[in-house]
């Protein structure tokens, strides 16, 4: 059951691998080299031979336990770290929030952070000027907008981060665990916003959450990772069942 079989590809991942060293950093100085008994450090495959195609219009719910490689995969798709093997082909502009932070600086005020983060994510200054009111309104932080970010709560920071991101002009959106700390009301508003954004521009989404209800509400496909391997890629209902059965 594939809804978008005719749509063009947005992301094509082929034979992707990412290795990390276990234990202390191999390069940690002379003392480390002398004291370690075996110089060969163990490697772990955080991502193990994953191939995946994401089409425009796909809304992927990425599921998996902690340490299954979800964030590593998203980091590679967002071009923050590079794969050890394989390649990712991207068609469009990627906008990503990883771990709920988007380059904010705690000493800057909310408004200054909107500009900083917006520019870092590829917005023009004029775009931000035009959208500033809307961003502040959506974030529900109007009263605190001239206060340094270090005085904000986690939830407020996420709200501000999301309202900036929702005004970015991209077509591949990536959200990693961003709805965990916001209240119910904002969660619903956010989901509505994401949906309208994606339908409106026919873009695609990769969404990571440990809360199944978010995935069900937002996504039309599920990808499950376990120990760096892709163990499921397909329909939403089946995927959720599969994920639930993993937990038992």
């Amino acid at each position: 059951m594939n809804f978008n079989s005719n749509n063009p590809l947005a992301i094509k991942i082929s034979n992707l691998e990412k290795e990390y060293y276990l234990g202390k950093n191999k390069f940690l100085g002379l003392m480390g080299k002398i004291s370690s008994k075996n110089n060969e450090l163990k490697k772990i495959k955080a991502i193990d031979n994953i191939s995946l195609e994401i089409k425009t219009g796909d809304r992927i719910g990425l599921l998996g336990h902690n340490g299954s490689g979800k964030s590593t995969l998203l980091r590679m798709v967002s071009d923050i770290t590079i794969p050890t093997k394989g390649e990712i082909l991207i068609n469009g502009k990627v906008c990503s929030i990883l771990q709920g932070r988007v380059g904010f600086h705690p000493e800057l005020t909310g408004k200054e952070n909107i500009y900083l983060s917006g520019v870092l994510h590829g917005m023009n200054k004029e775009d931000i000027d035009n959208n500033l009111e809307e961003i502040i309104e959506f974030s529900e932080c109007r009263n605190f907008i001239d206060t340094p970010l270090k005085r904000y709560s986690d939830g407020m920071t996420i709200k501000l981060a999301f309202s900036i991101l929702s005004h970015l002009d991209g077509n591949i959106y990536i959200f990693d665990e961003m709805l965990a700390t916001v209240d119910q009301f904002f969660r619903e508003k956010t989901i509505k916003k994401i949906k309208s954004k994606i339908n409106h521009k026919n873009s695609s989404l990769i969404f990571v959450s440990h809360q199944i209800e978010n995935i069900v509400e937002l996504c039309n496909k599920v990808v499950i990772l376990e120990n760096g391997k892709l163990i499921f890629n397909g329909d939403l209902k089946e995927g959720v069942e599969k994920y639930k059965s993993l937990n038992q």
């Binding site: 063009p8 590809l9 094509k12 590679m76 798709v77 071009d79 590079i82 794969p83 050890t84 093997k85 394989g86 390649e87 990712i88 082909l89 991207i90 068609n91 469009g92 502009k93």
Partner: peptide
């Protein structure tokens, strides 16, 4: 197909 960019292991 025209890809916007490519991410792989390269310098």
């Amino acid at each position: 197909m025209n890809w916007t960019y490519k991410i792989k292991n390269r310098e």
